[in-house]
Nucleic acid binder design. Structure first.
Length: 398
DNA sequence: CGTTTTTGACCTGCGC
DNA sequence: GCGCAGGTCAAAAACG
């Protein structure tokens, strides 16, 4: 198994140990290195200060440096005016660098925490699914619980002799690997063979799907070992200019910053898919995410598709003329923890307003998108994704 | 030489 | 039970 050599996200996380080392050096400076410095600096400090000496200056700039009971001030050193000026500038620069470094550490910390929370959420949701499964096993006349029970058939403890009896002994994370999770599919009009979404992928298979002359390619995420996210890339059989990218699974690592926007969007979309099944128990069908906006001239289309095993959210972005390359090169996926809840064989497009009680009228979603496009006709996909995401979060019923 | 892609074989689920 | 289709595996080939 190989790891990509260039990965912003991993690079981000790798700053942690580096930052730790730098922090230790600062402590070491106080404990040992500092002791010899005043004597060594009886003459003027060097004009060219080695990079590894930066921390000394930064610390000195924060306040007086103490040697035992004696306080060492810069003026105690015999320096020429020019050297003092340079030194002062250097000190200011070092302070800024130090501040930068601290901010970077804080950012890394936030990223790490976010990744950890995502993992925790995945585990909690998996446990919830298992609990629901156990509850549902004794009830067969409630349609909603039957759906849950049905979905649990898709839990496949691979390579176990007796899945039924062994299931409870399997660690949760193994369940996550085998669970059929909701998918998010994105349709985008592009000539590129594959949209660049900020992640590293390795192709592991290719198939000719029936009814489509274009092969379907299978990729798995290689940004971190054990990441379960996979994606399928395929040209639309009806319009080969449209590239259909389907994501499945949840990343076990922080994503590059550039990947955050659409990740947020798809997370919200899939979360909607999930919550709709739990907040609307009277109906087996979820409400629409959002609908066509005919006034736009273009339209955003979101649809649920319940195949035999995998509920799928489709975001049709192919109708945005401005989304031709190069703007289609900033998609990103990070699916939410994968709750399993439905596997009915119903497939419907929502833009037709086929759901009773769910009007295809103008939604806040499309209003927001329209406003965004009006504001900036050259809107990038990432920016538009953020708009969609924010509306989904602010108005779950949109 | 290590990594990635290709591609045929194999596995699994589903419908008949 | 059988056949089909989707998905995955893994050895071989290609690539840098």
């Amino acid at each position: 198994m190989s790891m990509p050599s260039t990965f912003d996200g991993d690079d981000e996380t790798q700053h942690w140990p580096a930052a730790g080392k730098r922090s230790i050096r600062e402590v070491d400076f106080f404990s040992s290195e500092r002791r010899g410095w005043p004597e060594d600096s009886a003459s003027a400090p060097p004009k060219e200060i080695p990079a590894h000496e930066d921390h000394k200056l930064a610390l000195l700039s924060v306040g007086p440096c103490e040697e035992g009971d004696k306080t060492i001030q810069p003026s105690d050193l015999h320096l020429s005016n020019t050297t003092m000026t340079n030194w002062s500038l250097k000190i200011k620069l070092d302070k800024l660098k130090d501040e930068n470094r601290k901010l970077r550490i804080m950012l890394d910390c936030a990223n790490q925490s976010y990744g950890a929370l995502q993992t925790q959420l995945a585990l909690l949701k998996q446990e919830e699914v298992l609990k629901l499964k156990n509850t549902a096993s004794s009830i067969d006349d409630d349609p909603r619980k039957s759906l849950i029970a049905h979905s649990c058939k898709n839990i496949r403890p691979a390579s176990l002799s007796d899945p039924e009896t062994d299931r409870d002994s399997i660690p949760i994370d193994k369940h996550e690997v085998s669970v059929r999770r909701p998918r998010v599919s994105i349709r985008a009009r592009t000539d590129a063979p594959m949209i660049s979404d900020g992640c590293q992928w390795r192709k592991y298979g290719q198939k000719l799907a029936k009814g489509n002359p274009c092969p379907r390619a299978y990729y798995r995420c290689t940004m971190r070992a054990g990441c379960s996210v996979r994606k399928q890339v395929q040209r639309c059989p009806h319009d080969e200019a449209v590239l259909v990218t389907t994501y499945e699974g949840s990343h076990n690592h922080p994503l590059p910053a550039a990947a955050a926007a659409l990740a947020s969007t798809t997370s919200a979309a899939a979360a909607m898919l999930v919550s709709s099944s739990t907040t609307n128990p009277s109906s087996n069908l979820p409400p629409p995410l959002f609908t066509d906006h005919q006034q736009l001239g273009t339209s955003i289309l979101a649809s649920y598709s319940y195949s035999s095993a995998c509920p799928t959210v489709t975001l049709d972005l192919s109708r945005f003329p401005s989304w031709n390359p190069p703007n289609t090169n900033c998609y990103s996926m990070m699916l939410p923890p994968p709750p399993v809840f439905n596997s009915s064989s119903i497939s419907r497009d929502l833009h037709d307003g086929q759901f009773p009680g769910h009007s295809p009228s103008t939604s806040s979603m499309t209003e927001a998108v329209k406003a965004a496009i009006d504001t900036d006709p050259s809107l990038t996909s990432a920016a538009l994704a953020m708009t969609i995401s924010s509306v989904l979060k602010a108005n779950p019923s949109a």
